[in-house]
Structures are given as C-alpha cells and as structure tokens.
Amino acid sequence: MKNYMNYFLSLGLLIIFGFGFCILDKKQSLDVAVVDMEEMFRSFEMTKEVNGKYTQLVKQHDLKLDSLNKVMTSVHKDPSTNDRVQASNLLALKIKKIQESKDQVKYELEQQIWNQLNQYLGEFGALEKYDLIHGSMNGGELIYVNSTLDVTDEVLMFINNKYNGIP
C-alpha cells in the first residue's frame, strides 16, 4: 500500500514538473519574424501610386525650372538688360524655391507611405500574435536568418489588402 502511495506521489510530482517546464518553455520562446523593409516599401501598392503622382509633380516642376533657366540664360546673354545681377539673383531664388518644394513634396509623400505601412505592419503583428517583428533593410543588420522566419511575402499580401480596403 505504502509502495503504491509513493508511486502515485512521484507520478503526480512528475506531471506537475512537466507542466511547469512546458509553461516556462513557452514563455521563453518568442514568436519572432523578419521582414525586408526595402522590398516592403518597393512592393507596397501605395508606393507605386504615389510614385506616379510624384512623377507628374516633378514634370510640372521641371517645366517651370526649364523656363526659368532659359530666362536666366537670356538675361546673362543680353547686354542691354539693366540690373542684370539683381535679375539673375531673383531667378536663382525662384529656382531654389522650386527645388525645395520638390524635395518637400517627396519627403511628405514618403512619410505618408511609412505612416500607412507601419500601421498595417502593427496590425499584422497583433493579428498573427507575433512578439517581435524585425524590419531588416536588405538583410543588412542581420548576420543569419532562418528563411522560415522571413514573412515578407505574407506581410506584403496583408498590407496591400489592407490598403485596398479588403478585410
């Protein structure tokens, strides 16, 4: 009888320890994934749309710049123009402003893309219950990644669907 009691007690302890280990082990292993941010940015549908928009804007800006450059050249060549220095300064200022506004537009559009991209990435992580998603830039900061951890394609499909309003 005593032998049986000892046997059951040992078995009980073994089960309890087993469960304990399982729980601890689960807590220690994080669900980690890696995404290639460069690929993500490039293949995000919004980026393609925004690129089209930006190209059109650049064309308009370039047209303005071209005509201003022509005016500037003619000002330089024409000896009869009074206040040549003043005129060319004014033109240079205008050209600089156009260039700056081009850069500003580029920055703002890129910022809009990152705002949406980060939001959808966060939603993906929460939905798939990841503990950590590492964004790698062309794999630069990571020495070795097991290819099974790379979820770039999966995330791309998710963010493009989200962007297009597909649940």
Binding site: M46, E49, V50, E108, L109, Q111, Q112, I113, N115, Q116, Y163, N164, G165, I166
Partner: peptide
C-alpha cells in the same frame, strides 16, 4: 466598389474603403 479619400491633409495619403 471603393470610396477613395486622399487624406493628405492628415499626413496619411490615400485611404481606400471597400
């Protein structure tokens, strides 16, 4: 069908509601 709202003013860009 999709309603597109360009929320540029809000720093977000194009939003698609399907």
């Amino acid at each position: 069908w999709t309603i597109q709202f360009d929320a540029e003013r809000f720093g977000i860009g194009m939003l698609n509601f399907r």
